[in-house]
């Protein structure tokens, strides 16, 4: 199970008004709201928690083949450790705890499930081909044997020599960025 989510902080400023009445209540539990509003930078923590929820949503949807749904408060975020650039968290989904890692810069936040073996953020076009290049280098296999495909549910994976090897990955787009999280353990 793998999931990731990228947030373009330059775009959220235009796209979302988190201070509108009811917004935080629809997205966050009361405890999360307290954490956010008591923090030094509520805006960053809003998008940090949002990206953690989205990353874990993608991971559990994939793992359990869930029908799509929209219920952000079903994913409850806890921050475990934080320094200026990296946040370690846990997201509680139903009875499960899923660890996440988030990398923060001044203009973006990238969250992914902690089982991610490598991640990539790409700007502009050719992002799929950048991903295949990186995998090719990482696994030391020829680029020509790799392709990207999707299953019936629209969940993407990378194939090696046709369908013989399926490498699961998660893809997220927002604003200027495309982000990938890849797990090489094939599960």
């Amino acid at each position: 199970m793998i999931g990731n989510d990228i947030i373009d902080l330059n775009l959220t400023k235009f796209q979302s008004n988190w201070s509108r009445r009811g917004f935080l209540q629809k997205v966050f539990t009361e405890k999360e709201q307290r954490f956010i509003l008591n923090s030094a930078n509520p805006e960053v923590n809003i998008w940090l928690f949002w990206s953690m929820k989205e990353a874990v949503y993608k991971a559990v949807q994939r793992k359990y083949k869930l029908v799509r749904f929209y219920n952000p408060t079903r994913f409850i975020c806890h921050q475990i450790d934080f320094n200026s650039k990296r946040s370690m968290g846990v997201v509680n989904f139903d009875n499960e705890l899923i660890k996440t890692i988030s990398v923060l810069t001044s203009d973006k936040i990238h969250s992914f499930t902690a089982n991610t073996e490598f991640s990539l953020i790409s700007e502009g076009n050719n992002s799929n081909s950048n991903l295949l290049h990186k995998i090719s280098n990482q696994l030391n296999i020829t680029l020509e044997s790799l392709n990207i495909s999707k299953d019936k549910e629209g969940i993407p994976f990378i194939t090696y020599h046709g369908d013989n090897l399926r490498i699961p990955f998660s893809l997220s787009h927002h604003g200027a960025y495309s982000a990938y999280a890849v797990s090489l353990n094939m599960s």
């Binding site: 959220t12 796209q15 979302s16 008004n17 509108r20 009445r21 009811g22 917004f23 629809k26 997205v27 949002w50 989205e54 929209y70 952000p72 927002h174």
Partner: peptide
């Protein structure tokens, strides 16, 4: 619709 904007759609419907 961006997934965070779905909240706005729901608030506007309310």
């Amino acid at each position: 619709v961006n997934s965070a904007n779905l909240v706005d759609v729901i608030l506007d419907v309310e």
